[in-house]
Design a protein around this nucleic acid. Structure first.
Lengths: 207, 207
DNA sequence: TGAGTATATGAATGAAAGTTCAGGTTTTTA
DNA sequence: TAAAAACCTGAACTTTCATTCATATACTCA
């Protein structure tokens, strides 16, 4: 993605008055609602605006184009989960490995489940919308926080912490995505929490 | 997805003569090539037809609509990987856990890497195109084969083989997808193979 | 209160894409 | 070899959608 292309994702205008703050907020929410209602290709700017109770013109005052809208919505969501994971890591330095993994897994799943539907809807648009860019950014934040935490754990001396952390990220993000996208009923989430935590502990000890 | 909707994904006509077999083949390949060239939303039926060296009309003789085309291409790819995994499982009954996991992981990654670009391109369309349907179907095949294999391994008596197998599937599919979609250089794939196999072995023993 | 700024409107524009179909060519069949 | 069946063509039709802009309303502050 070129620099010019990135610029086009920036907001066109920042809300000044409170009514426009509310408008932008409403547009954010409406985007997700529309995304949930149908296939992603039925997400049109007009539909989003209608759902938000404003006109298309208003939408275009704050977002230079449709992609920027998706980008913004995705970013907001990922920053939320990143924050959750960073907090979980920071709060568990020097804990036993079992506690670390249990906390990290559960806070991450919690963050994705706060609004399960939103998470699922956003997976669908992550590929477009410069999603890779945001994903890479948040991945780095995850890995930094996790590395800091794991350096306070007692791991096998042979451990390649860098790759280990990356593997943990791939595993968490991947399994949770797979789980949410499948038609697995909510009660299965409990099993996922358990098994994922166990799996990661076993891996850390074995490396 | 309703029954009527499923019907609309079925091929409109099956090729009889060899030239039309070649045509359909060309359309399959062209679809992937177009998908690789640009963003998924630039995948047009006209573009695919052009690339395949036929006219749009011809395309519509064999595929009732665009979605059916994507469905068919995705299906072909997933059946390939399913076959690879089934073979790997069948060939390793009664082996030590380490061998089982090593083989399964490596044959699965191999299948995805035969044409790395194709795999990546198809991830992008898996969400549309009734992709969930095919994914569920192949998941079941994966899990059946893996269950059969693992029942010949000596696992901890407490093991819940059913969920274990599912967890293994989520982990493999998820990490490999994450790896392929990221910008990780090919040399990192070796590390993934190693760590993924180790991780799964550790998990099986710990459950 | 009134000028200046921020915000909202929504019909109109133009480009893009999915799909059809009437008419042609090639292959098979009898 | 002639009719039938399979196959191919691509301009034309239709719908859908992103985006703009001239105009109107609401808010702020001096």
């Amino acid at each position: 993605m070129t620099k010019a292309a990135l610029l086009e994702l920036e907001p066109r205008k920042t809300p000044q008055q409170s009514r426009s703050v509310a408008t932008v907020e409403a547009i954010h929410d409406a985007t997700i609602q529309v995304l949930l209602k149908d296939e992603p290709d039925r997400l049109t700017t007009v539909r989003v605006a209608e759902r938000a109770g404003v006109s298309v013109g208003t939408l275009y005052q704050y977002f230079p184009n449709k992609q920027a809208l998706l980008f913004a919505v995705l970013e907001r969501h990922l920053l939320g989960t990143a924050k959750a994971l960073e907090d979980a890591c920071a709060a568990n330095h020097f804990q036993p490995l079992e506690v670390m993994m249990d906390e990290v897994v559960n806070r991450f799943i919690d963050a994705k489940l706060v609004d399960r539907d939103t998470s699922v809807a956003l997976y669908r648009i992550a590929a477009e919308a410069g999603g890779n860019l945001i994903l890479e950014r948040t991945r780095k934040r995850y890995e930094t926080a996790m590395t800091a935490m794991l350096q306070t754990a007692n791991l096998p001396a042979s451990a390649d912490v860098n790759y280990m952390v990356h593997m943990i990220y791939l595993t968490m993000a991947g399994t949770i995505r797979g789980h949410l996208e499948s038609s697995a009923p909510p009660r299965m989430t409990r099993k996922l929490r358990e098994h994922l935590a166990k799996l990661l502990v076993a891996y850390c000890k074995a490396v």
